[in-house]
Design a protein around this nucleic acid. Structure first.
Lengths: 153, 153
DNA sequence: ATCATAATGTTCCAAATGGAACAATATGGC
DNA sequence: GCCATATTGTTCCATTTGGAACATTATGAT
């Protein structure tokens, strides 16, 4: 059988923008996450946890779940593994006995910085086809839409 | 503890475009897929199979795996379930005993059309914040980048 | 023609995943 | 203050997931 044109669907799909966005997103992050798992043994939720804590001084597990839109139990598991690895510190919240404040350690931050290069490299590989102008415009529109999405639900 | 600004990370992340793209993609498809699972009992791989077969006359399981960038075994399982549900037809390839040609049935196509409205509705919800011009420009840039991504690996 | 190599679809199995229920704590109405 | 309700983090459990190995068939080099 003749191999089909793999990209025809980009034009015929009923929701082209959503399809292209998720396709692009997967094309960027999946190979990068695979490499991270291979090279560092981190699963996705663990890496997400490090990313969040690298960009906020202090968070609760619930905060991370909300920022990353992941279920709380996967974050809970990731917290335990990253605590054991020494990439995290946890302190009970003095004002609220239910929650604990999480902070990243220098070791966790170093790990995140290394991992971030994987994502950045793959991002450039995929988006390198765009001109500088296109990149700038894309960034702005994405920012606007992502901020709007963050306000939904 | 004061609730953190959930969207600060959009600006501080090391790979802002990749982050925004995956964030947007998840914000669109995850609620839609959840609703599809709830309302139709289809898991993601099954729906992806229907989408692909709705847009190509005839595909092998391997074709679907490549178009959707999913592992072959999950597609294989989805084929069996969709065959049992009558949403698919399978015929052995006369020229190649290893592969089988898949086609969608009218029932499968009707199901896909219904599901597509979920994705389309959510796409509009998330992207409605953009102007018509922005939407047009975004579409074009996404198309260019997605086509490039499809040629990688 | 023969044999090493590759491709397809499937099964097996271990791991990741997420919904639901839970205990502990906090909040708000009265 | 008291009690119903909500929130946080965790555990339990069933399902989903994907890598690896496999049988079958095709391809290509000689």
């Amino acid at each position: 059988m003749a191999p089909p044109d793999l990209s025809k669907i980009f034009d015929t799909i009923e929701y082209p923008d959503a399809y292209r966005i998720t396709y692009l997103g997967n094309a960027i992050v999946m190979p990068a996450y695979d490499a991270v798992q291979r090279d560092f043994g981190l699963v996705r939720a663990e890496y997400i946890l490090l990313v969040c804590l690298s960009h906020y001084e202090e968070l609760t597990a619930q905060d991370v779940a909300r920022i990353a839109r992941r279920p709380r139990n996967t974050i809970s598991r990731a917290v335990h593994r990253m605590l054991k690895e020494g990439h995290l510190e946890r302190a009970p919240d003095p004002n609220d006995g239910r929650q604990a404040r999480l902070r990243i350690t220098p070791s966790g931050r170093a790990l995140h910085e290394e991992i971030a290069t994987y994502l950045l490299r793959r991002q450039e590989e995929v988006l390198s086809v765009l001109s500088a102008d296109e990149r700038r415009i894309l960034s702005g529109i994405l920012q606007k839409a992502a901020l709007h999405a963050a306000t939904l639900d």
